[in-house]
Amino acid sequence: MGRAFGHRLGAAAIQLFFASLLVFALIRVLPGDLALSILADTPHTIETREALREELGLNDPQVVQYARWLWETLTGLRGVARSTGEPIRALVARQLGVTLLLALYAVTISLAFAIPLGIAAAHPKRRVLGAAVEGVTALGLAVPGFWVALLLILGLLRLFAWSPPIIYFGPLEFFSDHFALMIWPAILLAWQHAAHLLPVVRAETSRALANPFTVAARARGLSERRVLYRHAGRLALWPAISVSGVQFGGAIAGSLVLETIFGIPGIGRGLVNAALARDLPLVQTLVFVIVAIVLGVMLAADLLGLMLDPRTRYTT
């Protein structure tokens, strides 16, 4: 068990290292000239561009630039955001918590609905529920979340003359406003998340129902309900956690758009604003932070799986 733990930890660290290389390469190397890329939309002189190159350290070799950026980022997100003048560490500290809370709400809602529903829908006799689950899944995959969000805001405004609060409060500062703002994007994200989760839970439970142990359980006189939820459904839990971990990145990506619509000051909106302001160094650092979080959550899901399901300890 300890060895398997170490194995996954090492693999995640290596993956993070290569991801940092990839993000650096995409933003610094791909455009050819970063300074030109940042200044693309603004009229500028050659002197300003040279000054910017000097400021960003673009005249150093790429390896030096990469090492400097990675060092500054890993040793506490040093540096200042060019577009807002705020220290990057303060910026991330302010925004990351908000996004993580939103993602946490979304994943919790998704798990709370998708697991019981997916297990129940696996029963061959529940045709209507099965069709309903398929419909919810297809809509969640196909309909863009931000359009539903717009419809929702319009509907709430027209029908109840109610719109989400404009100012964000933390959950401990002013809970009712926090809740009123976060609940809608959380539900929308949960729907998209559940659209990936439901089919897995359902398929895994169906597969488990075909096992001889369910026949044995029925033969012992256990109720159909108990066989379904306690015996067959249990086998769907670990795949569900695994999918939740993998889809966490999707939830963060979805919150990019939803945070912008609802005016939630999270890292998604921060990233979009940095992109629109062409603050590429900030984009680079924020993407790296998000990738690190996503990898961390996937690792946590993996480790949880190791504890829940002994069989996974022996696969690489």
Partner: peptide, 11 residues
Amino acid sequence: SIPSFLLALII
């Protein structure tokens, strides 16, 4: 390991 929407955004 990088969410595909982020990848698309950067590019």
